Simulated scan of single mutants.
Amino acid sequence: MASSTARPRTQDDRPPGGDVARRLLDSAAKLAYDPAVEVDWETPLDKRFHGASPEWSTLYGTAYWDEMTEEQRRELTRQEAASVACTGIWFEMILQQMVLRDIYTKDPTGAEVQWALTEIADECRHSIMFARGAAKLEAPPYRPHRFALELGRAFKTLAFGEVAYAAILVAEEVLDVMQRDWMRDERVVPFVRTINNIHVVEESRHMKFARDETRRRLAGAGPLRRRINALVIAIASYVIVTSMVNRKVYANAGLDERRAVREAKANEHHKAMMRSSCSGLMEFLASARLLTGPALVFYKRAHLI
């Protein structure tokens, strides 16, 4: 009679991506943060500081920026940083649902599922951290516009495989570059610098996994599937990036909203900052053959390329 005891998992039995997941689990065990403890939530907001590096403001380099007082500039960057944080919460909620759905039927004793659960736990802490950070910046709870919210609702329900992981990668990579600047900038209020440092360190693991999963899921994909998914990823990227700064930040900073929106849309400096921040991401998407002609239309509209 055959033994009823399950045999040990061998190297050949392990799911693809398991080696990467095991290394990321080891990394998370060695270096992880608790924002409730690490971030200084008690010290009152010091309004002598910016909320983000001024060069990342959507109005930096415009005629309007030149007319603003230093106080207005600092208030604007605080409102913009809060808007980016709120958009981050929105997408992290989408991310968590996609990852949970992806691992729903997989082996929970495997490293891949355990890493996915670790990533979800990270994102829960990040969302709370961003929410508390936005509140401390004295900003309202910014939300993407209704159309983006409904597209997100559909995307989190329908996206799977390389579409889900590549979209996750886009959102994380765009945030990563700007936050690396903010966390080193002494003009930025200290508690925001701490938030950015925590996010950069922990998201570096998430980006590694997203890149690995995107490559793995695309292995053997036919040309039609690749073209369709490239377009879906590009549309999702466009919605994410264009939702980062809510137009209400300008009025809340005491500015003329219509003029600010008009000048922000024409701001070549900010467009150049976005393109430079996404050079590595675009190289990856190109190597994965996801920069098709139709996809490029949306990346160019979002000023990512």
Results as ranks from 00 to 15, higher is better:
residue 80 E to Y: 03
residue 81 A to W: 06
residue 82 A to E: 02
residue 83 S to L: 05
residue 85 A to I: 07
residue 86 C to I: 02
residue 87 T to V: 13
residue 88 G to C: 05
residue 89 I to G: 00
residue 91 F to N: 03
residue 92 E to F: 05
residue 93 M to H: 03
residue 93 M to S: 01
residue 95 L to R: 05
residue 98 M to D: 02
residue 98 M to F: 07
residue 101 R to D: 15
residue 101 R to Q: 15
residue 103 I to T: 09
residue 106 K to R: 13
residue 111 A to R: 04
residue 111 A to I: 00
residue 112 E to R: 13
residue 114 Q to A: 04
residue 115 W to F: 07
residue 115 W to P: 02
residue 115 W to E: 07
residue 116 A to I: 04
residue 116 A to M: 06
residue 120 I to P: 09
residue 120 I to H: 06
residue 120 I to Q: 04
residue 122 D to C: 08
residue 122 D to T: 12
residue 124 C to W: 10
residue 125 R to G: 09
residue 125 R to V: 10
residue 126 H to Y: 10
residue 129 M to A: 09
residue 131 A to M: 15
residue 135 A to M: 15
residue 135 A to W: 13
residue 135 A to Y: 15
residue 137 L to W: 06
residue 137 L to G: 03
residue 139 A to Q: 14
residue 139 A to N: 13
residue 140 P to G: 05
residue 143 R to Q: 14
residue 143 R to Y: 13
residue 143 R to S: 12
residue 144 P to N: 10
residue 147 F to L: 12
residue 148 A to R: 00
residue 149 L to N: 06
residue 149 L to R: 14
residue 150 E to Y: 08
residue 150 E to L: 08
residue 151 L to S: 02
residue 152 G to D: 01
residue 152 G to W: 00
residue 153 R to Q: 14
residue 155 F to Q: 08
residue 158 L to S: 04
residue 158 L to R: 14
residue 158 L to G: 07
residue 161 G to A: 02
residue 162 E to N: 09
residue 163 V to Q: 10
residue 165 Y to P: 01
residue 165 Y to V: 05
residue 167 A to H: 07
residue 170 V to T: 12
residue 170 V to D: 11
residue 171 A to I: 08
residue 172 E to A: 04
residue 172 E to C: 01
residue 172 E to M: 03
residue 173 E to F: 03
residue 173 E to S: 11
residue 173 E to A: 07
residue 174 V to C: 10
residue 174 V to E: 04
residue 175 L to P: 05
residue 176 D to R: 11
residue 176 D to Y: 08
residue 177 V to Y: 11
residue 178 M to H: 04
residue 180 R to E: 11
residue 182 W to D: 06
residue 182 W to G: 01
residue 183 M to E: 10
residue 183 M to I: 09
residue 184 R to G: 00
residue 185 D to L: 03
residue 186 E to T: 06
residue 187 R to W: 01
residue 187 R to C: 00
residue 188 V to D: 00
residue 189 V to H: 02
residue 190 P to E: 12
residue 190 P to C: 08
residue 191 F to W: 13
residue 192 V to I: 14
residue 193 R to G: 11
residue 194 T to F: 01
residue 195 I to S: 08
residue 197 N to C: 08
residue 197 N to G: 15
residue 197 N to Q: 11
residue 198 I to N: 00
residue 201 V to D: 04
residue 202 E to Q: 07
residue 203 E to M: 00
residue 204 S to M: 01
residue 205 R to W: 02
